[in-house]
Simulated assay, not measured.
Amino acid sequence: MVNQKIQDRLAALRAVMKKNGVDWYMVPTADFHNSEYVDAYFKVREYLCNFSGSNGTLIVGMDEAGLWTDGRYFIQAERELTGTGVTLYRMLEDNVPTKEEFLQQKMENGQTLGFDGRVVDTRFGLKLEKDLADKQIKIVYGKDLADEVWTDRPALPCHPVLVPDEALFGQNVSEKLAAVRKDMAAHGASGLFLSKLDDLMWLLNIRGADVECNPVALSYAYLTQDECHFFLQDGEVTDVLKAHAAKYHITLHPYEEAAEWMESCAITGSVMCDEGNVSYAFYKILENRAEVVDAANPTELLKAVKNETELANMQEVYLKDSVAVCKFIYWVKKNVGKIPMTEYS
């Protein structure tokens, strides 16, 4: 059975590709921050091919398209791709090419590969550069072509940022910034670009609601030894956040101006970033402006080591959770067979 809706969407994408001189277009499952879970705005791959799993990459050419996903989703993907004209490539199965191998095999010398560089991590982007260099493939990463196809696309998620009582964290922002700057100095970096959302929330002692089941806000930060620049949407900024930022000498900027600001700000020395978590688009900006030091975000290890306050809060949360589970088990035992029970009861 033909899935005409998806075939029409792919045809529209191919028309946009042709207009922009793009021979192959890649759509991963990611947001601008390499998050594991993404908001509806970023579900471009699902819109274009109907596959709704949490992991998968779509590659579209003028005459064919393929979807790569892992073993958790083979059955689901096979069902959802029926009639779309998209071929399923079962990752890590025998004789199944990787995405890079597929592009090496299919692309002709001098062709153009396109993708939205904001949703492709640097490590993978650089690997594509290397793997496709022999064919002199041009990579175009500055446009989200799907945005011209997805006319009723949801808006970017935007929710007011929360500033909890700092007593809950066991460390204030100044202490955390000092620890991060110490690590920067150890790497010989004068700047640090951060885009991993949970790291940003930890560092600045704030919380958001832009990703379902994840208390994070879409944001970026650029740190030097003396400054902290924080980028987030205007609709997320509250008076409480402004006061919090002023207290710790954090300069707030509009989220959508992050790339432009990074292209024009004064950068001296080297800039530290994690190639596995910073987008290819931002890496290219940094690469053009400074020496880039590839290193794990200092925040990763720092937030992994819990202080006494955090440990106590975790114990309290587990106790409350245990009480809720016990109450639920009691309710089930008391009512099973007596009243209708569904997951919505």
Rank of each mutant, 00 (worst) to 15 (best):
T299Y: 06
A146S: 15
N55D: 11
E129V: 08
M107I: 01
A243Q: 14
K106N: 12
Y41C: 03
D116K: 03
A186E: 14
K334N: 13
R72D: 12
Y255E: 04
A12H: 15
H187G: 01
L156S: 07
Y89T: 05
V305P: 01
N95C: 09
N3L: 13
K176L: 06
Q111P: 06
E148H: 13
V60P: 00
K338M: 09
N50H: 10
F231W: 15
V38E: 08
V38Y: 05
C265G: 06
A324G: 00
I137M: 03
S54A: 13
F282T: 04
H249W: 01
E148G: 05
E300I: 00
E236L: 08
L252K: 10
V216Q: 00
V27N: 00
G235T: 09
L203F: 04
T87D: 10
E166P: 08
H253K: 11
V211A: 00
K182E: 14
A221C: 13
K143N: 04
W150K: 09
A11P: 00
S345H: 12
V240M: 07
E343I: 15
V27Q: 01
L13T: 04
N277A: 08
Q136T: 10
E227C: 07
V22Y: 01
T224D: 11
E93F: 10
N288F: 06
A209E: 13
M184S: 02
W202T: 01
T84C: 03
S219A: 15
F115H: 09
G21L: 14
P254N: 06
G276S: 12
A65C: 07
I137P: 07
W261H: 14
Y248K: 01
G191D: 08
N55H: 08
Y41R: 05
D294C: 13
K247D: 07
K306Y: 12
A209I: 03
A179W: 02
A243M: 12
A77H: 01
K196L: 02
Y283M: 09
L81V: 11
E46C: 01
G117V: 03
D199N: 15
K43L: 12
E300H: 09
R289P: 07
L58S: 11
Y41T: 02
A40K: 10
A281P: 05
T57D: 11
T82D: 14
E260C: 06
E256A: 14
N307F: 13
K19V: 10
K303C: 03
C49G: 05
G21V: 14
G170C: 04
P298A: 14
V60K: 00
F230N: 06
E343Y: 15
K196G: 06
L67A: 01
A281F: 13
R14P: 00
K242Y: 06
Q233R: 15
L81F: 12
L194E: 05
W68E: 02
R45T: 03
A155Y: 07
D294E: 08
R45G: 01
